[in-house]
């Protein structure tokens, strides 16, 4: 089990669906949504929420800065 539990919040309407966050996520937590946002892009979502450790790699690489990362220690 992961020592840290992480979670991200994606600003769906600003996400352009480039998929770079999905390609660099070390734990394969991220994927693209099936639905589209107002501009017609598939946006980034957590497809395996339990694997996120809050490393913030996605937040640092996102070209549009749409990802906010949270992390808490697991008891």
């Amino acid at each position: 089990m992961a020592k840290f539990k992480g979670s991200i919040v994606v600003d769906k309407e600003r996400c352009k669906g480039c998929g770079i966050c999905v390609s660099i996520c070390p734990n394969k937590t991220l994927g693209m949504s099936k639905e589209v946002n107002g501009k017609g892009y598939n946006f980034a979502v957590m497809v395996a929420e339990e694997t996120c450790v809050g490393c913030a790699s996605c937040g640092r690489i996102c070209p549009d800065g749409v990802i906010t990362v949270y992390r808490a220690k697991e008891d």
Binding site: K5, G6, S7, G54, A56, G59, R60, Y70, R71
Partner: peptide, 9 residues
């Protein structure tokens, strides 16, 4: 866990 004190990025 999405609270201000857990914010990392």
């Amino acid at each position: 866990i999405c609270t201000p004190e857990n914010l990392v990025y």
